[in-house]
Each structure stands twice: as structure tokens, then as C-alpha cells.
Amino acid sequence: MTARQTPLYETHVKYGGKIVEFGGWLLPVQYAGIIDEHKVVREKAGLFDVSHMGEVLVKGTDALAFLQKLVTNDVSRMADTQVQYTPMCYPDGGTVDDLLIYRRSQDEYFLVINAANIEKDWNWMKENSAGFNVELTNLSDETAELALQGPLAETILSKLTDTPLDNLRYYWFIPELKVAGKTVMISRTGYTGEDGFEIYCRPGDAAQLWEAVMEAGKPYGLMPAGLGCRDTLRFEAALPLYGHELSATITPIEAGVGKFVSLDKGEFNGRAVLAGRKQTGPIRKIAGFILTGRGIPRADYPVLSEGRRIGTVTTGSYAPTLDKNIGLALVEAEYAKIGQHFDVEIRGKNVPAEVIAKPFYHR
């Protein structure tokens, strides 16, 4: 299967993006460099192409009932124009995906799913929709998405729209507005641990919007940002990445996102298993750690205690904001307590590490 291009592929080439394949897509891993891009998002603002993400529209009189069965969070608590983060689980409690739900009305919701999971999620949703009066539409190919992230994001985006943005709260959205003359939907959301906006548009408008945002951001030090710093930014904020901290074999309870599992809303996929895990406490947990020896931890490295394997690194990296080598690891629950010590095996050597609080970074 050949890798796909987003509508901004040529733009990335023009801006000097170093293109890599990610989840079946050709995307920029970096432009100026991962650390420079990371720091500019923390201090000013960065612009990301996230058009590879998937989008599904759920409409119908049973839309709410269907979503309540499908996901772990309580969708009935949402108001119109609110956004909600939620895991979506299998009956055994393992995670199908984690996603964002945008409520347009009680009968209409817009879902944003992970790029690598589009086909799997789509099939799972179709299968689960049996018996519900809902219509599902896969809008992934008809939707492009830019993410403007960083403390100056509002200042920059305000230059391109007459719609006031200062009263748009975190995890709320504006269904339709003009940005740089194009009709878009924006939400105050992101995946970096910073303030910011996600801009949904028609694929044909993406390149012009990118250029308009870059131009508006010039006086503020805006830089294009790639997948590399998107990962280091989300990781410092301890936001889970599907396939690492969440997967078909890792429940939301183990991943530390149990607060998005609402047991009091009635029946949903995985409820029985997740209720049991919440009650007894999970036998494995995602722990944040810092290396006290030399080396950089990477995903899939073994975690050991007195030579016995107790878990696996799920994400590890040098953290530019903290200037430390840190990681997340799925370990036996007793080793996940703050102050615990274990070793990470890095290229055949056991490097000592200590469990620390997460998120590693707060804005």
C-alpha cells in the first residue's frame, strides 16, 4: 500500500520539511529541528498539519444512545459546541482508540479519531451501530486539519478572523466561522500541553489557510512544526499516544485515564471489566520516570527490578523543556509509586531510573 499525502504535502516540501512515513501517511517529522520547534511551541507558537487524522459524523435520533454504548465517557453531560475526550473500548476493556467528540446537537456529533486507526474504528463503529437509528459518515477524506499551538496562538489566529476568540473556552468549539476568508470549524484543543486551536477545513482550502496563518504569525515568531516535536510536547504533558500508552491490550484504567471512564452512565462496551479494574486497582500501571543514569529510554525497552522484568517502556525521550531523559512505562502496579526505583535496559546495560509525578510539564 503506498503512503498517502495530505493536502499540505507540497507546502511541507516548500518549507523544507523532512518527510517520513507515519501510519501510512507522508508527513514532516521536522523542519528547523525538533528541539527548536518544541521550544517555539512552549514559548510562542507552532503550526502543525494534522490532516491525517480521521473524522466521522454521527447523526440520528439514537446518536446519543449509540455513543453512550460505544465510548467510556458520559456523552450525555455534553452541551452543544462542547468537546469531550474519551477512550473507546472492546468488551474485554482493551482500547480500540481514544478520540474527541464534538457535540453539534443532541442528534449530531463529529468524532476525531487517530490516523492509523481510521479503518479499524470505522468498522467497529459500523458493527456497533446495529439496532440504533443512526447514520455514520466517514468524513476523513473530506476534512483537512491544522493545529496552531502555543501561548501566542490566540493572538495570531485573531488576526485572521472577525469572530472573537478570547471567550472560547478550552474544549469548546465554534461550528462555523471565517478564517482568512475560508469557512472553517475551530476548537480550543490540542495535543501539546499548551493553549491552542485546531482548525478543520476543506482539503482545497488547507494550503491557503496554512500560508495565511504563517504570514499572520511572522511578527510573533511562529514556526512550522513536525511530528517529532508533536511527540515530545504531548509526552512532556503525559498525554497518551495510541499504540504506546493505550492499545487493545492496555485498558484506560492502566493507562491512567480512568477519570474518562464513567461507570455510572449505564451499560457500555467494556464496562464490567473496567468496573472490576477500578474496584480492585489495576495490576499494571503507566508510571512516569526519570533516568538517574546515562542514556535515553525508548519504546519497548525492558524495565527490570533486581534482574526481573516488571514492565516495558511505552514512550521515552530527551525532554527539551526539562532538559532530562524521561519516560513512561507500563509496569507492575507496586512499582508505579512515586519514588520507586527500577532499571531500564538500554542496549544491554541496566540504567537506573526513579518514578516521578506526571505530567512532567504544566503550562
Rank of each mutant, 00 (worst) to 15 (best):
L139N: 12
F268D: 00
A63T: 06
M78Q: 12
R294F: 10
D80T: 13
T249E: 14
F235L: 09
V58D: 03
A65T: 11
G150C: 10
F235T: 14
L241Y: 13
W172C: 07
T315G: 04
S262M: 01
A45D: 06
N128W: 03
G93P: 01
L330C: 02
T11S: 15
F48D: 02
K44T: 12
S305P: 05
P219Q: 06
G33E: 10
I356N: 01
N167S: 07
G23E: 10
L111T: 03
M53Q: 04
D166K: 00
L239P: 02
P320Y: 06
D80Y: 10
L274T: 00
Y200A: 10
A144K: 11
P87W: 00
Q5P: 04
M223A: 09
L227D: 02
E345H: 03
A147V: 09
H12N: 06
S262A: 09
G94K: 00
N123G: 08
R169Y: 05
Q68V: 07
T155F: 07
I186S: 03
E245D: 06
K182W: 09
Y318Q: 02
K218F: 06
T81Y: 14
Y170M: 09
D62K: 10
E176R: 15
G266W: 02
S262V: 04
V13N: 13
K218V: 10
E10D: 15
G307T: 10
G276K: 12
D231C: 08
S105Y: 11
L136P: 02
E306C: 10
P175G: 14
V112Y: 08
G295P: 09
F110H: 13
